[in-house]
Design a protein around this nucleic acid. Structure first.
Lengths: 131, 131
DNA sequence: CTTTATTTTGATAATGATTATCATTATTAT
DNA sequence: ATAATAATGATAATCATTATCAAAATAAAG
C-alpha cells in the first residue's frame, strides 16, 4: 500500500512545473528551500517510484546522468551538443499518432510487443548555432 | 595525432562483429582471450574514441550501463523490458529517409540544427511475449 | 483520542561504472 | 638507431545511484 508523503507530493509538483528536465541534484537544491532537511535519498526513491507509476519520464542524456520529465503532452526531445540543455518538441495529435503507427509497424517486423518509445534528437539548439 | 594500436583494432573488430550490443565488461571478458593482459581502462578509452570518430554508436539502456553498437546499417533499437536484450530493427533506405525528414521538420519547429537521432522502442520481444 | 502496525524518511555506508593518474611500453618520425 | 610522442595496464579517484537502518510520519483499529 502507498502512503502519502509531503516529500513525494512536492517532488512530483516540482517536476511537473519545471520544463528544464532536472537531475536529482537539481531537484535536491530546489526542494531544500521548501523542505530544508529533505534527504537526497528520498528524491532518488520518489523519482524512481513516480517513473514506475508512469507519472513522470526518465531520460538518459549524453553525460550519463538521468533527468526527469513531467511534461504530459506528446513530445520528443532534442539535446544540444553544445550547451547540453534538453528541449521538448511538441507533437500535434495527428503527428504523434502517425509516428506511433510507423514505430508499431517497425516493431512488428521483429514480432515484438511495442509499448513505449523514446526519440532523442541531437545537434545545435537555436542559440548555440548562432555562435 | 592518432597512433595505431592492436588493442584498438581488436576492440573495433569485435564491436563490428557482434550484434549483441556489448557493455565494456562484456568486451573485456571477450578480448582477454585474444590479449590476456588487456586493461579495462584501455577498452573504456577506445570505445569512447571510436564513438567520437563516429565508427561505433553508444546506446543508453534502462539499467544505465552503456552499450556499444557497430552495426552500420540504418536501424533503430528495441529493448525488451523482460530479458533486457536490445534488438536492431533494420530500416529500408526509403523508410530511413522518410523518418529523417520527419525529424528534420520537427527540429525546425524549435529552430535547431538537427544532426543525429536515436530511436529506442521498448516492450516485450518475440520470445518474452510468448511466456 | 490512543495504540498499533506499516511505510517513509534522512543520514550515511556501500556499490559499481567510469575517469584520471602515471610509470612503462609501443609506435612513428628523424 | 635515436628521439619524440602516444597508448597501455594497473590502480586510485570520482561520482551517481542504491542499500541499510533507526527514527519519524501516516494510516488503521480499538
Amino acid at each position: 500500500m502507498k502512503k502519502y508523503s509531503r516529500q513525494r507530493e512536492v517532488i512530483l509538483e516540482s517536476i511537473k512545473m519545471r520544463r528544464d528536465h532536472p537531475t536529482v541534484d537539481m531537484l535536491y537544491e530546489d526542494l531544500k528551500l521548501q523542505i530544508p532537511n529533505i534527504g537526497i535519498a528520498t528524491i532518488y526513491r520518489n523519482v524512481s517510484e513516480l517513473c514506475n507509476c508512469g507519472q513522470i519520464r526518465k531520460i538518459k542524456c549524453e553525460d550519463g546522468v538521468y533527468r526527469y520529465d513531467g511534461n504530459e503532452e506528446n513530445h520528443i526531445h532534442f539535446e544540444c551538443n553544445n550547451c547540453h540543455r534538453i528541449f521538448d518538441i511538441k507533437l500535434e495529435e495527428k503527428e504523434s499518432t502517425k509516428i506511433k503507427n510507423e514505430l508499431q509497424n517497425l516493431a512488428n517486423t521483429i514480432n515484438a510487443e511495442f509499448d513505449k518509445q523514446e526519440i532523442m534528437l541531437s545537434g545545435l539548439c537555436e542559440k548555440c548555432k548562432k555562435q
